[in-house]
Amino acid sequence: MKRIKLALIPYSAYALIFIVAPILLILLYSFQDSSGSFTLENYARFFDLSDPVYLKVLWRSIKLAVISTVICLILGYPMAYILSRLPARIRGTVSFLFILPMWMNFLLRTYSWMSLLERTGLINSLIGWFNGILPSALQLPTLDIMYTQWAVVLGNVYNFLPFMILPIYTVLIKIDKSLIEAAQDLGASRGRVFRKVIFPLSLSGVVSGISMTFMPAVTTFVISRLLGGGQNALIGDMIENQFKVVGDWGFGSAMSVILMVLILLTMNVIQRYESENSGGSVLM
């Protein structure tokens, strides 16, 4: 016991210096004006209803993150399910293929989407080529989503999909096969087995997946800047802007705190919903 306590010291020190202290600092900054005295001005500015520019950005961030998360779930769950049903020897290779893009730099991946989606990018060149050989009645429209919110959603989904698939897949492969047989034995058809046993048992994976896609999606600033252009700035862009361009650390900190509280609240709600339904969760 004593030895375990000793071993905890470096970790506690790490947590204190690199996690607790920065959060406290941000909290502190958020209540300070530029001269360092106490103020609520930073928060008041954010929630100013006469000029809700920041609330609009927050709303857009949440909206795009929710849309991206839902799309990730719709794409990711069936994928995870199919993956979990594959024979064990193929399963390893296929899940490896899903992780493979994650080995590449995140920025690089996002930049490559830029060149794919651009007005003169690869996709539109292909469409142009097809239009060249297709009769005029079958002309394809050019893809023009670069610098729109849809491009941001696409970037989010592309980058965060593996984080949805993997936790669901991990939970699915751990479900005891005899539970599925028991459900069949008690009269459940394939669809019923899925609805009454497999899906409820995989909820903890779904919750982790949602957490792991929603959190980076709501805070991202790289994807929105590269694919969304200036007019689709998200809360992450605003925070970065305050620190790096404007230099108003107090306001930037206040926005960080608001975002943090928001994430904590959402996660809490989801977790509570999940633990009521199945007990046992993966995150938090």
Binding site: D176, S178, A182, D185, G187, N277
Partner: peptide, 18 residues
């Protein structure tokens, strides 16, 4: 299995944990 008039008691019970 789901159409058989047979039910099984499994070796490790296989009760539904949820």
């Amino acid at each position: 299995p789901h159409k058989r008039q047979v039910n099984t008691v499994f070796q490790r019970y296989a009760l539904f944990p949820h």
